[in-house]
Amino acid sequence: MTYKLILNGKTLKGETTTEAVDAATAEKVFKQYANDNGSDGEWTYDDATKTFTVTE
């Protein structure tokens, strides 16, 4: 399945997607991506749209 990440950071904004077997796997990928790019904030997940959002 395709999962989407929306970044609403102070310095990093945008979207990216990943293919993953489940939401937990996608979350690990996205959290590593956000960490690698210095983005940290409040995470939410919408199962209906398969979208993670991180807001700083």
Rank of each mutant, 00 (worst) to 15 (best):
G9D: 04
G41L: 12
N37H: 14
T18H: 06
T53H: 06
E27H: 10
D47E: 13
K10F: 12
T44E: 09
M1S: 12
E42K: 09
G9T: 15
V29Q: 07
G38E: 06
T53P: 00
Y3E: 02
T25Y: 07
A24L: 10
I6K: 06
W43L: 04
D47L: 06
K28M: 11
N35E: 13
T18E: 03
D47C: 07
F52G: 00
Q32I: 10
Y3N: 02
L5W: 02
T11G: 14
K50N: 06
E56W: 14
T49W: 03
G14Y: 15
T11M: 10
A24S: 09
G9H: 06
T51E: 03
Y33V: 05
L5D: 02
K4P: 02
G9R: 06
F30A: 00
V21T: 10
M1R: 12
L12I: 13
M1V: 13
A26L: 01
D36I: 12
K50I: 02
T44R: 08
M1F: 14
T25G: 07
K10T: 12
A24M: 10
A20P: 01
A34S: 04
I6W: 04
K4E: 03
T16D: 03
T18N: 03
K13S: 09
D22I: 01
N8M: 14
L7A: 04
D47G: 07
T16H: 14
T11E: 09
T16A: 11
N35F: 15
I6Q: 04
V29I: 14
W43M: 05
T51N: 01
T18G: 02
T2M: 12
T53E: 04
T53V: 08
K50T: 03
E42Y: 12
N8C: 15
K4Q: 05
K31C: 05
T51G: 00
K10M: 11
A48P: 06
L5P: 02
L5M: 04
K28V: 09
A26P: 00
V54M: 10
E19Q: 14
T55I: 08
S39L: 15
T11C: 15
K28R: 13
T49V: 04
T2I: 14
E56A: 10
A23Y: 13
T49D: 03
T51H: 01
A48L: 11
Y45Q: 00
K13E: 05
A23Q: 10
Q32Y: 04
T53F: 10
V29W: 14
T11P: 05
Y45R: 00
E56G: 08
A20T: 04
T55G: 05
A23W: 13
A26S: 01
K13D: 05
K28E: 08
M1D: 12
T55W: 11
D47N: 08
A23N: 05
D40T: 14
K28D: 05
Y45M: 01
E42F: 13
W43F: 04
Y45I: 01
T49G: 03
L5Y: 03
A34C: 14
V54G: 01
M1Q: 13
